[in-house]
Amino acid sequence: MTDAIYPQARIVSARFLRPDTVEQLLNRLVQVGGILRMSINGPSIPTTVPYGPARGKPNPHPDRKVIHVGDQDVLLQVQVGTIILELEDESYIAGIREAVDEVFAEKDFTCAVQQGRYMKSQPTISDYAKYGPDADREILGLVDPRKKDGPIIIQGTK
């Protein structure tokens, strides 16, 4: 959550993405640059079986794996379906569209790039009650601020 209103974009594919496609797409986005914050969304892939008679047993899942983005390793904890971006300015959106078109050119499904407001701009009363006054505003509304592992920082070229 920042005071200045930065433009935001959302990348929505018609299908859930495989980890290698995500890796390819994110690396292409990092090349475009101008990204302040990024959140990758989708249904969670838990480490253990959450419900039922097998509850608590390990859940090996081929799509829960580490991908390499920029100069960092990222552990995918979700099956990626949506990517939300906060950009320095609107001029980067054209580059993002181009990058997405390039990655999805050979796929048999489409992927849309939308512009709008997709990140929480102000903490709500519930956020205050849940996380207190000192919650990290950078990640509030994107992930649970109580999570121990913080955001992954990918160094830009500036």
Partner: peptide, 10 residues
């Protein structure tokens, strides 16, 4: 939910 890239249900 959307299907996965290979057409399988999530």
């Amino acid at each position: 939910l959307r299907l996965a890239e290979n057409g399988m249900m999530f």
